[in-house]
Amino acid sequence: MKKLLLPLLFLFLFVFESIFIEFLPLKMFGNEVIFVPRLLLIAILFFTIFGDVKQGILTGFIMGLLFDVVYTGILGIYLVLFPLIAFLVSKIMKALQANAVILTFVSLVAITLLEFAVYEMNYLIKITNMEFSAFLEKRLLPTLILNLLVTIIIGYPLKRFFEKYKKEIIKE
């Protein structure tokens, strides 16, 4: 059952990200802010940690490809970054305890890493000319705050879901 639900869950999060944006405010406290929900990355990380490492990286690869094709139109960026970050997080989590605080912190670090890497890439290929300081305050900070909230809300259900999924795999 969980096996069938898994691709549906990722597909739903993938589509939901772009719809979620419509509900986010453009301005906060008089400053222009860019909120970027990273539900998909959070789910991939939780899958890598609580489910299966190899499958997590593979999911990162597939969802990255889909993200590139459908949303950005520039193939390769998310395709490489999603699995790479999933791999790094799996390595980090071997050394750390998987409790709520550490998990939240690790996912925020992963999101920061992703945002930095994507910013650098886009700057390099001239998709954006945003300055670094503007990137930090307009984009990175709001994004981290939003994703902190998102992780707190969806973290526990995701953990339960993936743990059950793992049990099902082991049973078979």
Binding site: S18, I21, F67, Y71, G73, Y78, Y119
Partner: peptide, 13 residues
Amino acid sequence: IARNADRWEELLI
């Protein structure tokens, strides 16, 4: 029906 989820380049679908 959707917009670019990472919001670097503004694209609509």
